[in-house]
């Protein structure tokens, strides 16, 4: 009989304990829910979110860095290309200027030479003309002097008239 009592006590739920357990459980649910679980869960959630955000921003910063790096590379390449182009242009300009200068100088030189030549020719011509004039005047003077001396006596004059008349053929 004793054992049956014990078994009944083991398997039969007592009303009092059911009552107090219900009250305790509900109280715990309300009090812990309000004063413990809510702040704890919120804090854990906030922390997890902040960690997530931090990780995401780190990842974003990494991507930004990569992008920046590639942008830098592009800019650098562009600058290099521009520099090359500028150098090329400068060389071309220099070559053009030099060749132009050369051409101009050549033309100037040619012009100077040709004008010099023309001057020389004209100088020469004028000199020749002058010389001719002087030679003519000198010849006239000489002829004058010779004639003066030749024709100073009558004999000589006669001789000359005869010589001239001799040469003068009467046709």
């Amino acid at each position: 009989m004793n054992q049956l009592f014990i078994l009944a006590g083991l398997l039969e739920p007592a009303v009092g304990l059911i009552f107090w357990t219900s009250i305790t459980f509900l109280l715990l649910l309300v009090l812990l829910g309000k004063f413990a679980w809510k702040p704890i869960l919120n804090a854990i959630k906030t922390r997890e979110e902040s960690i997530k955000v931090a990780l995401e921003s780190a990842e974003k910063a990494k991507l930004d860095m990569l992008e920046l790096k590639s942008t830098n590379e592009t800019i650098l390449n562009q600058a290099r290309a521009e520099r090359d182009m500028m150098l090329k242009e400068a060389r071309e300009t220099k070559d053009a200027i030099v060749s132009e200068a050369k051409q101009k100088a050549q033309a100037d030189a040619d012009r100077i030479i040709s004008s010099a030549r023309e001057q020389i020719i004209s100088e020469k011509n004028s000199a020749v003309a002058d010389l001719k004039k002087q030679v003519a005047s000198l010849s006239i003077e000489i002829a004058e002097k010779i004639l003066k001396t030749e024709l100073s006596n009558i004999d000589k004059q006669k001789e000359l008239v005869s010589a001239l008349t001799k040469n003068l053929k009467l046709n």
Binding site: L28, L31, L32, F35, A36, K38, P39, I40
Partner: peptide, 10 residues
Amino acid sequence: LLLWLFISIA
């Protein structure tokens, strides 16, 4: 015990 434990943790 539970109230003390978890409210102090909160």
